[in-house]
């Protein structure tokens, strides 16, 4: 009996040590590569969101939920991640529905251009910090490149063990408590880098999107229908990579077929008031804070009017939560 106890004790210690080392060597996404931590921030939310934004960096850099609340009382969350692919958007939406059912889902369509997983590095930023669920298993399976294997997601130590010799202060400081870097999924960037030019536009080799992208766009649409969510498509006003006229036609055709609203903000740059000499932090790929606020103010008016979203500024519970959020937001803006 005593021997069994010792065996279990050793086994328990081994498991504790394994989990500890695994946590230690895994990236913390708190100071560096903060984009990898955005997906986990959502799990800290404790109030409902009327609007959910899905997509790649064109949503988390360009749309500011704090602005939408301040100006319109709209509660929203950006579940965007770096180079989020269509199948990733689908599984993230599916996961979100375990927590809440938004009234409107806004999907940025830039990722329709990618027909296969792009790189492990981007997969990691989207997937590593997701909570374990059926959707996490499915998103891993759908996203892995040929060189990746499922077990490296299940046991991060298999992937990150080599970091043991290059650990930094960040790995120890945020070992047990990771840092929250977003404001309802929005990542603030106040730098200014004016637009100059981009590489020459390449001819398209394929004018239509890949079947797998349509397959997941269909799945997102059906999932929204089943949950009585209004699906809205958008293209953020990012100047690069080029949004080809053929892409635009494809999306318009899809939106018409299924009677979805589609907003291409590239066509509204002047109306929104975006100045690419001031409102971008990387020469026109992403908007900075002033640009994101201009786009959010413009889009917020449409969302509020067209989808009859409630003004939550008079709702005491929501007001209390958002007052705290706004204090944190302005603290970062003014720092």
């Amino acid at each position: 009996m005593k021997r069994v106890g010792i065996v279990f004790g050793i086994l328990f210690l081994f498991i504790v040590l394994f989990v500890f080392i695994s946590e230690l060597v895994s990236p913390k996404y708190s100071i560096h590569l903060v984009e990898g931590g955005m997906i986990r921030d959502y799990y800290l939310e404790n109030t409902h969101h009327d609007v959910l934004f899905l997509g790649d960096c064109e949503v988390y850099a360009n749309l500011n939920p704090m602005n939408l609340y301040e100006n319109y009382g709209i509660t929203s969350y950006v579940r965007g991640t770096s180079q989020q692919l269509m199948w990733q958007s689908y599984f993230i939406l599916k996961e979100t529905l375990h927590y809440e059912t938004p009234k409107v889902v806004v999907l940025n369509v830039n990722a329709m251009r990618y027909s296969e997983p792009v790189s492990e590095a981007y997969n990691r930023l989207t997937i590593d910090e997701m909570k374990w669920s059926k959707e996490k298993i499915e998103i891993i399976k759908a996203s892995m490149t040929k060189e990746e294997n499922f077990f490296s997601y299940l046991f991060p130590i298999l992937r990150y063990h080599s970091r043991i010799t290059s650990l930094t202060d960040e790995d120890f400081t945020y070992l047990f408590q990771k840092k929250k870097n977003t404001h309802n999924g929005f990542l603030i960037n106040q730098n200014v880098k004016p637009y100059t030019s981009f590489p020459t536009e390449r001819p398209l080799t394929q004018s239509d999107f890949s079947p797998i992208d349509y397959e997941y766009l269909d799945k997102i649409r059906v999932l929204c229908e089943e949950n009585k969510i209004t699906l809205v498509l958008m293209k953020a006003p990012s100047l690069y990579p080029y949004w080809y006229p053929e892409y635009e036609e494809n999306i318009k055709r899809y939106a018409n077929t299924y009677q979805l609203d589609y907003y291409n903000f590239l066509e509204k740059i002047e109306e929104i008031g975006i100045d690419y000499q001031k409102d971008t932090y990387d020469g026109g790929l992403h908007l900075n804070l002033t640009g994101a606020n201009k786009l959010s103010t413009y889009f917020g008016a449409i969302l509020k009017e067209k989808y009859s979203l409630q003004d939550h500024r008079n709702d005491d519970k929501i007001k209390e939560v958002y007052e705290k959020k706004l204090r944190e937001y302005y603290k970062e803006v003014e720092s």
Partner: peptide, 11 residues
């Protein structure tokens, strides 16, 4: 003749 830069989303 001219020069442009493109940064990645995160890296």
């Amino acid at each position: 003749l001219s020069y442009s830069e493109v940064s990645s989303c995160a890296f």
